[in-house]
Amino acid sequence: MNENTDIIIVEQLTKKFGNFTAVDHISFRVHRGEIFGFLGANGAGKTTAMKILCGLSLPTSGGGTVNGYDLCREQEKIKRHIGYMSQKFSLYADLKVWENIRLFGGIYGLSGKRIRQKSDEMLRYLNMTDLRDELVGDLPLGWKQKLAFSIALIHEPAIVFLDEPTGGVDPETRRLFWDLICETAEAGTTIFVTTHYMDEAEYCDRVSIMVDGVIADLDTPAALKQRHQAADMDAVFRKLAYQAKRE
């Protein structure tokens, strides 16, 4: 029960939609500063669980804390300290690159001066300085994802949630994107990431695999491979995910 070492503490978290239990009494912890991979087949309950952690959805029962704030009562406080980037690309396509940065900086309460400073830094870091006046809708997907990730970090959150951040991008961009994630983690930000690419799971410090709304296993990639006698994470995932009973 140490909130200094664990940024996410979840106990018996459950979400039901009518008769369907999307998330079934899950409990786990995420340590500060780690890259936590949150895996599972489509429909296993990953996105639902992640939405609860981000304060977008209320649990049916159970609860927990994110950065010390209660999941059931302090969603708006949680939102101040997290970043979020969803699988559905979610910057404003009809705003320019600098305007998107300015908008989200403003929403998180950064001063005008700080926003200008931040956007210069960010664009230089992403090699996008020449693109600052482009409409975001005109950028290639890989650039959009990188920009969305950086904007999710604009207020220097303690933890950033990435919901399938690399869906639909080419392998090279995917690798560059993970460089970005690793650098961010080294700088001290906790990363909570869902993905369907098992090679990406290897980059995570610890990985949990959800099957049918419960966490089937949770450990470091090395320990998981050993326990399930598998050569790589792909094999681990297949072994666990094929136990699934529900469609």
């Binding site: 977008l56 406080k77 939102k79 559905k88 690309f89 979610s90 910057l91 396509a93 929403i107 998180y108």
Partner: peptide, 13 residues
């Protein structure tokens, strides 16, 4: 429809 409202909802606005 575009999903941008989710990005707004996850901010403290």
């Amino acid at each position: 429809e575009r999903g941008t409202i989710e990005q707004i909802n996850v901010t403290p606005v």
